[in-house]
Computed example of a mutant assay.
Amino acid sequence: MDLQLTLVVAGLVIGIVVGMTGMGGGALMTPALVLFFNVPPLAAVSSDLVVSAVMKPVGGVVHLRRGTVDLRLVGWLCAGSVPAAFGGVLVSRALGSGAGVQQWTKIALGAALLLAAAGLILRAYQSLVARGRRAADRAAGRPVTRDEATVGGYRVRPVPTVLVGVLGGLIVGMTSVGSGSLIIIALLALYPRLSAAGLVGTDLVQAVPLVASAALGHLLFGDFRLDLTASLLVGCLPGVYLGARLSSRAPGGLVRRALALVLLASGLKLLGLPDLAMVATLGVVVVVGPLLWMSARVRHGLPPRAPILAEARARTRSERESAVPR
């Protein structure tokens, strides 16, 4: 298959995942370019950020219309992330473009992917705890209350929020990973009462200027390749639209589990773990992970296993309810 057509197909698949889950763009596209297309890490980061800068506003507009964005948080995050993202590009540029820098970028990308995988698991566990609490309320005949707020209803913490933006922006500028994974986990820790819809909407909107800043830096100082980026965009744009249409029907939980496994495998590969050790590690995760998850479900009052499609419909219904302005 022609290289450009292969890149279009890869962009389509990644776009569908982004549309379905709201994350995975940089965490999938950059390692895919490095591992499967032998694109130098710096060029992969540059192209991915420019693609993301085009895709992000589409989802951001949707969430702004639905009222699931806290513009206060967006402002404080951008105060730190926008200059830091541009600065991350300058740091990479200052290090040079030799083989040593390419290897360093590869290692930094691998570490960021492992953090992103851990963040996905953390988000899933928090959702599990919330479902267990609601199930316990229903079983006891108590009214099922929601202590989450789509926007507002909590005190904004400016300094920690700006620091999250600085750290996230620096990582995004250097590796392209983090705008939809690492920052959202930090928001989850700082604002636990922010609903799932508010969390995703706020993170997506703040990522627009963040990624635009990093993309501008890479256009000016990075290793941007127009042909590579154009092919990816041809696939990504319809993929995001299709994924968004499928998001209400597809089992998002299953997609996120697969995404976490892919992030883990990509991170380990980029960090140079031998193939045999990587296969053994993934095998342990595949076997032990579901057992630990079943144990966690039981501990929080849920059945060990639940129908994935039913759970997906319940989660979608929950997010729609939380998206209604209060």
Score class of each variant (00 low, 15 high):
103 Q>V: 13
103 Q>T: 15
104 W>S: 12
104 W>I: 06
106 K>W: 01
107 I>K: 00
107 I>C: 00
112 A>H: 06
112 A>T: 02
112 A>K: 02
113 L>D: 06
113 L>K: 05
114 L>S: 06
115 L>W: 11
115 L>H: 07
116 A>T: 07
116 A>L: 08
116 A>Q: 04
117 A>I: 07
118 A>Q: 05
119 G>H: 11
120 L>T: 13
121 I>S: 14
122 L>G: 15
122 L>P: 06
123 R>C: 08
123 R>P: 05
124 A>P: 10
124 A>T: 12
126 Q>H: 15
129 V>H: 13
131 R>C: 00
134 R>V: 00
137 D>Y: 01
139 A>P: 08
140 A>R: 12
141 G>R: 04
141 G>F: 00
142 R>C: 02
142 R>F: 01
142 R>Q: 13
143 P>T: 03
143 P>G: 09
146 R>A: 08
147 D>R: 04
147 D>S: 04
148 E>S: 08
148 E>T: 13
149 A>F: 10
150 T>D: 04
151 V>K: 06
152 G>K: 04
154 Y>Q: 05
155 R>S: 03
155 R>M: 00
155 R>T: 09
159 V>A: 14
159 V>K: 04
163 L>M: 14
163 L>K: 08
164 V>P: 08
164 V>A: 14
164 V>G: 08
166 V>D: 12
169 G>P: 05
169 G>W: 02
171 I>Y: 03
172 V>Q: 09
173 G>R: 10
176 S>E: 10
